[in-house]
Structure formats: C-alpha cells, structure tokens
Simulated assay, not measured.
Amino acid sequence: MIVDAGLGAAGLLRRPVSGRVVSVHRKAAYLRFGDALVALVAPGVEPGPVHVRCTTLPPCRVGEAVTGDGSRLAGRQWALRGPGAVWWGTSPGPLELAARDDALVREALVPGEVIVAAARALGSGLDALVGAVGGRGPGLTPAGDDVLAGVVLVDRAAGGPAVEERLTAVCASVPTTEVARAFLAWAARGQSVAPAHDWLGAVAAGDRDAASRALARLHALGADSGRHLAAGMALGLGQLPRVVSQTARADAGPGLRHRV
C-alpha cells in the first residue's frame, strides 16, 4: 500500500502511466516514467519530492515494466494500492531566513574536501559552484551534487518563484547521475527531503532543539548524502544578508542595530 507521495511523484500516481524499473537498492527502487523519476521507498525512509513511501517495499526487478491506472501501481509480481496522501516540503521565506541563528547554521558545516571546494567557489556565484563540485563524487547522488542541492534549495527559498527558472537551468547543466539530476531539479523548485525543510525552519526560528533533531535526521541519510546536503544549505545561508530579528533586538536593548 502507498502511504504518501512527494510532489514530484503524486501527479504520476493519479493518472494512467507506464514505465520501467531502472535500479533497485536496499531501501528504494527507482522507476522511470517518460522523463520523470520516482522512487518507491521502504517504511522509515524520509519523505521527499520523488519518494513514494510504501508500507512494504515491493520485490522490483531492474528492467521490469510498471503500469498505473490512477489507483493501483503494478509490476510483474507485485501491486501497490494508492495513490496515498500528497507530501510537500515548506521552507521559511526571505525575511525569516534573514533572521536566522548563524550559530545553528555553523553546526551543519562538517569537514570535507567537497565542502571546502564548494565554499571557495560559491563566492564567485552559482555557475562557479557547479564547475567546482557538480557531479563530483561516487554514488547515486555524488557529494558535490548534494552540496549543490542544499545551496539551490536555500536560493529558491530566499528568491521565491522569480529565481526558479534560473536555478532549474543551472541544475540541468550539471553532468551527473539520473537520480542526482532529479533531486537537483526539485531543489530548484523548492522541494527536498523532509529533514532539510525542518532544519531550515528551525534555524530560521532559532529553535536549537528542533534544529539538532533535524540535523541528526539529515546526517542519517545515506553514507554521507545528508551531511553534504546540510552543509550545502549552511553555505547557501551564509551567502544571504542577515538582520537581527525584532525579538532579538528587543531582548538586547536599544543599543542594538540591524546587521546586514
């Protein structure tokens, strides 16, 4: 049975589709429907834009055909009832991000060669960042693309719909894996895995406990994908102007001014 589906997968599950299984892993099976990639994921996997969370991960095989009729998704020897609830991530807006707690942001900056390279390149802009880390590293989602996805997610939250076309074009230019390209494309639309949105919200609100919990969930994703995604968000936030919140200014007294 399908529990829920991210924004990038939900529409596909609500109409007739046909596709194939392109890869199978311990906790996920990736299906391609035309140009769209969907991941069937096991119980306990975090929600995400292309994730279809199932009560039990079906026994998919690479290359098998998959069809859907809007209420049922089926392979050769399995079927899932759905389409389930729609999940999407929400992020703070530019004013909330400007009043973030930078001490919490710094906690997400873990050591790493790719992170150092990203930090050096980011000052020269997003194109320079893509050139420095895009597609860099092994795995389904290379470390460089995880960092890039974090930066892009923050840029989309800060810039709103007006920057989406530009971010989408930049992400489409990255020479990377099919899975990484799908997650980058959705980051450009403001969608990522659930703990990324939870962490951004907690950092913007200055909620240390919630930020720590969300960061721990991020660090549990993959071998190091979540760590690089979190570091990318931290780098992205570091590029944004910052102002002290009204609450902080009131607590500190009349001598405190805006910091930008």
Rank of each mutant, 00 (worst) to 15 (best):
G44Q: 10
R242L: 07
R208C: 01
V179N: 07
A182L: 07
T90F: 09
A202V: 10
L184H: 05
A65W: 07
C54E: 06
R189E: 15
V203I: 09
G75I: 09
V3I: 12
P241C: 12
L80V: 10
V170E: 00
W199L: 13
L95C: 10
V62R: 03
V45C: 03
P92W: 06
P49C: 03
L240F: 03
D198G: 04
S18M: 05
G255M: 11
A29T: 09
A39L: 10
A187L: 02
L240Q: 08
G160R: 02
Q239W: 09
V174L: 02
R32T: 12
V21R: 02
G44C: 09
E64Y: 02
A230V: 15
E107I: 01
A39W: 13
G253E: 02
A121W: 15
L140M: 12
T56F: 08
L95V: 15
A132E: 15
T247F: 11
G226N: 04
D209I: 13
R61L: 08
L31P: 02
A185D: 14
A117Y: 13
G160H: 02
L153M: 00
G89A: 10
L153Q: 00
G135P: 15
T247I: 03
D209S: 14
G255A: 11
D146C: 09
R76Y: 06
G144Y: 05
V170K: 01
A157S: 05
Q246P: 14
A149L: 03
D4F: 04
A210T: 07
A117S: 14
G112M: 13
S192K: 04
G6D: 04
L221V: 14
V170Q: 01
L218A: 02
P241M: 12
L104P: 02
L80W: 11
P94R: 15
Q77E: 09
T56Q: 12
V105H: 04
G123A: 09
R81F: 12
H219L: 13
G201W: 13
A143H: 08
E64C: 00
E113F: 13
A5R: 00
G238D: 06
G226V: 03
R32D: 04
P195H: 09
V66N: 05
D102K: 04
V86D: 00
D127T: 13
H25A: 12
V66P: 00
R166E: 14
G75M: 02
